[in-house]
Design a protein around this nucleic acid. Sequence first.
DNA 1: TGCCGCTATTTGTCGGACAATAAACGGAAA
DNA 2: TTTCCGTTTATTGTCCGACAAATAGCGGCA
Lengths: 237, 237
Amino acid sequence: MTLIGTLKTDKGGSAVDQVVSQMRQLIGEKGLTVGDQLPTEKELCETFGASRNTVREAMRILKTYGVVEVRPKVGATIVDNRMSSAIEMFSFNVMDISLETFSDIQGFRGLLEVSSVETILDQITAEDIADLRRINDKLRDPSEIEVAAEYDFEFHTRLVSVLRNKAILDIYGLMKPVILRIMLNGKTRDTFKTATFEEHQGVIEALEARDRLAYQYRLKTHLETGSANFSMKDAAS
Amino acid sequence: MTLIGTLKTDKGGSAVDQVVSQMRQLIGEKGLTVGDQLPTEKELCETFGASRNTVREAMRILKTYGVVEVRPKVGATIVDNRMSSAIEMFSFNVMDISLETFSDIQGFRGLLEVSSVETILDQITAEDIADLRRINDKLRDPSEIEVAAEYDFEFHTRLVSVLRNKAILDIYGLMKPVILRIMLNGKTRDTFKTATFEEHQGVIEALEARDRLAYQYRLKTHLETGSANFSMKDAAS
DNA sequence: TGCCGCTATTTGTCGGACAATAAACGGAAA
DNA sequence: TTTCCGTTTATTGTCCGACAAATAGCGGCA
C-alpha cells in the first residue's frame, strides 16, 4: 500500500522524522525560499504517503523551528524566524536567577543600552523620542507596582528597539522575566513615580540633545541604581 | 477537574498552544525537573480536556524544543537538550540565511565585539591575548576551509569571552551555525590563511596597545569584510 | 535463581469526520 | 462596467476511534 513508505529515504527514525527530512529535501529541490508557499497538507500526504496526522506533526516541527508559518486556508509559508524560535525555547522554564546570572544580565543590558550609544544616536528619530516620552509618562500614574515595572521595561525595550535589530530585540524580550525582577528590587510604587521617572526623563533629554556622554552617564547610573540592593535579596521562586 | 481546560482559555491562540502553556504550568506547579516523568498522553488528554492529537502536537513542540524526550511505552521524560535543539534549528539547511537575519546577526556581533571595547580593554589580560594569538596562529595552516571557519569562530568567541559574561557567551554560541556560514561566505582557504589572519593580528595588536580607536576600526572593518559579498550570493547547500 | 515468553500498557500511525476560517467566485446594485 | 456582499469551496484545526509497534512488568519454567 504505502509504497512510498517502503522506499523511505533515510535510515529513518519515526515516520514523522522521515517526513521532515523529505520536506527539507522537497524545499531544497524546488528551490523554495522565504515567502514561497508549501503544498497543502493533502498534497504532502499523497506525495509522502503519510497520514495527515504524521504530516501535521512534521509541520509542527518546522513551525517550532521557525522556518514555516501556517495560516488556516492559506497554507504554509516559508519564513525565517529561527532566531526568535531559538530564543523562545530558552524562555521555557524559569531560569534560576543566581547572583552570577543577575550580574551577567545587567552587564548585557549595559552593553545593549549604554555601549550602543553610537548606533542609537545615529538611528533615533523624533518618533522614537516621542514614544519614549509617552511611555515614561505612564510611570507617573501607576496603579500597582507590577504595572509600573512593566512600564519601566517597556521604556527600555523601546530604547533597544531603536537599534532596529530583531535579534537583539528578541533577546531583550527573552530576559524580560529576569529584568522585571531586577526592576522590582527594593523599589516602591513611589520610587517608580519619582526617581525612575526622573532618570528616564534625563535619558530622553540627553537623547534629544544628542549628548553622548550625558546619555551614557545617566543610563549607566540608572542601571546601577537598579542593581544596588540586589545582592542581599535572593529569596524568590 | 478539567476546569483548567476551560478557564485557561486565555485567548491563547490555538488549542495546541494552550496545551503547551498548560503543560509548562503543570511542570512548574509540580516542580518537575530533569529526569522526571510526565503523565501519559491519555492522562494529559483528560487533564486538559483536549484530544490526543492536540496533546501530541503540543508534545511535539516540547520535543522540538528539547525539553522532553519520549519513548514508546516509557512516556515523556523531562530533559534539557535545548542548546543542541537550538543548534539543530540553525543548521536547518533548507534555505539560505535571510538577508534580514544576516544583517541582524552582524549588527549584534558588532555590538558584542566592537561597541564593548571599553569593557574588553578594561578586562583583558595577558592570558587572553596569548590565547587569541594561539588561536589565530592555527589559521595559518588550515587543512580545510570548514576547519578554518571553525578557527575563525573560535577567535571571535574567545574575544567575546573576555567580557566574562556567561549569558552573552551562551548566546554567541547559539548563533554559531549562522556565524559559520557568514564566515564561509565568499572566502577561500587562502583568504583565511592571509587576509583573515592579518586582520585578526591587527586586532590583537590594537588590544595589546590598548588602542581603543584602532581596535574598533580594525574589528569593524573585519566584520564588514565578511558582509561585503553576501547580498549577491545565495546559491548554497 | 535466572532465563524466557506472555500480557498489558503506552506511544506511533492511520483514516475519517466535522468545525473554523478565509480565499475565490458569482450575483446584484449603483 | 465597477463595486459590494453573500455563497461556495478549499484548507487548516480539532476530535474520534482503531490498529500496529514497542517495551516494561509479570509469571512460568528449567
